[in-house]
Nucleic acid binder design. Structure first.
Lengths: 238, 238
DNA sequence: TCAAGCATTTTTCTCGAGATTTGATTAAGC
DNA sequence: GCTTAATCAAATCTCGAGAAAAATGCTTGA
């Protein structure tokens, strides 16, 4: 695993079996294939992912890094549980880090940065058009481009650590968004928000850009808070 | 490894060999026993730490979590390299997170929190007195109490994620401080700073407390920046 | 009927050996 | 003399089996 993989979880070519299993497992957890709180038995999963027991253990250990898997003492591995409080924490911390990174980007970003933002926004807009037409299977693509757009915005920040932490948190919030009850159709408003964010950023209006970004991120919080609270306590398999 | 271990790296009783090796390795890296950039050969280390090869691999993988060890492709493990830019990044990000956490603590902290801050400050003060008398071997103890004080200050923050990230960064900066050329005698001024920080916090003066904390953290940065720049490029063993 | 203690079964954790890949040394060719 | 290729050694990655621990079910007794 390269430093890039360490600091960004980028989807590089898996050069080792551990990496491969790690990436597939991570995707499956984020997409909800493995439910929150679910026990992850090495014996079962090693067949499912076609690797040895030791290799799978190492992959699970790497997922502990991302806080997508928890492990305690001698009692094996488990998909990280979810809670409203946790999602609120993730969201607010994301705001703190991402606004700071955006501030730095706007201050320091050059032509290359602007170009990458323009490009990412363009790609995202196209995906949102297709989404409005209710094309099936485009959600996956939108998800990737949305992330790419957010990453482009802060890519001129010189702080590798902020970007590293931001990646972890984005991953976390993506899992929350994808878990069924939260899953909501991507509305038309989202595009307007992205447009406003894009405009303010390119205009180098730091105050306005960070303000929009804050609202944008916090919006996802409302949807979750409207969920029935017993969802979290109800279906945990112990 | 418990959730506590995941989110705080707390020095809990090592319930498993992997954990034990992980903790000892981490301490040795932070203390500079394994120099930055040094290659970590599994075959050598497994004897040194009295565990099997697979077990040591898992411990190293956990250290990748903390960004104390890096690994690329099929080329094994290596102690994370150091650089001035990295330390500056660590320090500034620490300021961002720690001031926010302190802000939250001051706003939300109750009597229990105040009590823990008072207690931690008292312990730290005693350690600083002993340090002024040039007692040998007290640096270790001061290091622990200093960390405990900083943790107590932000312990009333409800954000587990901020505290988690703060832990990682504190660990990182501790390594930088301990690596020989940076190693500087703990001066008397430090105590005055801690005192001021303590006073402002208990007075619930958010603005003043965060301001002092910022200066306090940034101070360590100056010392490093005064170092000869070729230190970083010079002794890297490749 | 319920609780407590014991035995069984499952699962995790640990280890050493085999298969691949990387890096280094040496030799050949231009 | 310098670059390129091939051979060899070292280290990493991978796997399955054995030891330790935890979870489960069953029997026994009140």
């Amino acid at each position: 695993m390269s430093e890039a993989a360490l600091l960004s979880n980028a989807a590089a070519e898996p050069k080792t079996l551990v990496e491969g299993a790690y990436q597939r497992l991570r995707r499956d957890i984020i997409e909800g294939v493995h439910a929150p709180g679910e026990k992850l038995r090495v014996e079962h999963l090693k067949d499912q992912y076609d690797v040895g027991a030791g290799t799978l253990r190492e992959a699970l250990l790497l997922l502990v890094t991302d806080a997508l898997v928890v492990t305690q003492g001698q009692r094996g591995f488990r998909v990280a549980p979810i809670s409203i409080a946790d999602f609120e924490d993730i969201t607010r911390t994301r705001v703190l880090l991402e606004t700071e990174a955006l501030r730095q980007s706007i201050t320091l970003g050059g032509d290359d940065w602007e170009a990458s933002v323009v490009a990412a926004f363009h790609r995202l807009s196209r995906a949102e058009e297709k989404l409005a037409d209710h094309d099936p299977g485009t959600t996956e693509e939108w998800e990737k481009r949305n992330r790419a757009f957010h990453e482009a915005l802060i890519s001129a920040s010189p702080s590798r650590w902020i970007r590293h932490f931001q990646n972890i948190l984005y991953q976390q919030s993506e899992r929350y968004r994808r878990i069924s009850p939260f899953r909501q159709p991507i509305e038309r408003d989202i595009h307007a928000e992205h447009q406003a964010l894009f405009d303010a950023t390119l205009a180098r209006d730091t105050t306005r850009a960070t303000s929009i970004l804050t609202e944008h991120i916090l919006r996802t919080l409302d949807a979750v808070k409207r969920m029935p609270t017993d969802f979290f306590t109800g279906k945990k398999k112990l």
